[in-house]
């Protein structure tokens, strides 16, 4: 044996490599069984990014199924409620190119919530069955109402209503939801105060000439 190896040094390398391959193969095989992860962690991560509107505009019955489909390789631009931000986040997560929203599945709209005109409601419970997040309250032949804080604005209750008494009301900006907007590039924003360094230094150049320089 040794003689043979001594005679053909190439064999030594061959044996060593095959041996290493076998050992690591066995190790990896064991690890794959021993540390098997349940479920699909990628789908979970994708699901965490999706807006959970459960509107079905992507063509899947809810956000979770779409997350699973994305994990299987479906396009990431089919979620209008999530819009560009969601596409960007998905692109970052999956390390793919961010693509513009697929208009086929709808446009990015202002967030809105459903409102039932209660005196027109006939109590048919059809919208209750359609609501994916159980955000509509009511009983047969009783007036129904939307729990505004739970409504995702998915639109799914509007279509089944036989008397068309559900409106989607866009959520307006209030004092509580208002916030500063990013400055537009290349445009002087006159509302900003703290940038007046030139003015201040111009007025009293003696004090701050070193800083202005």
């Amino acid at each position: 044996m040794f003689e043979l190896i001594a005679q053909y040094p190439l064999l030594a390398a061959l044996f060593a490599l095959v041996g290493l391959g076998a050992i690591f193969g066995a190790l990896l095989g064991f690890a794959a069984v021993r540390f098997k992860t349940e479920g699909d962690p990628i789908a979970d991560q994708i699901n965490a990014i999706l807006p959970q509107t459960q509107c079905g505009q992507c063509g899947h019955p809810g956000c979770r199924p779409y997350a699973e489909a994305i994990a299987e390789g479906e396009a990431i631009n089919k979620c209008p409620p999530g819009g560009e931000a969601t596409i960007q986040a998905l692109a970052d997560l999956l390390d793919v190119e961010a693509i513009p929203l697929d208009e086929e599945h709808g446009e990015e709209k202002v967030k809105s919530i459903a409102y039932i005109r209660e005196d027109e409601c006939i109590g048919c419970t059809k919208c209750i069955q359609a609501c994916p997040v159980d955000a509509i309250l009511g009983a047969a032949k009783q007036m129904h109402t939307v729990i505004a804080s739970e409504c995702t604005g998915c639109d799914l209750c509007v279509e089944p209503c036989p008397v068309d008494c559900i409106d989607m009301i866009p959520q307006e900006e209030t004092l509580q939801t208002w916030h500063w907007k990013l400055p537009e590039l290349g445009r002087a924003n006159v509302d900003i105060i703290a940038t007046d360094s030139l003015a201040l230094t111009a007025e009293t150049p003696a004090q701050d000439s070193d800083r202005a320089a």
């Binding site: 459960q54 994916p132 997040v133 995702t152 916030h179 500063w180 703290a194």
Partner: peptide, 28 residues
């Protein structure tokens, strides 16, 4: 500062949105 104010507000908004979407997910 304007950038920071806007970004802070946006992050807070995202946190709120995420909380809401989490709630929706649980309900769904």
């Amino acid at each position: 500062v304007q950038y920071y104010r806007a970004s802070k507000a946006e992050i807070l908004q995202q946190r709120r949105d995420h909380e809401k979407s989490e709630q929706s997910r649980i309900r769904f």
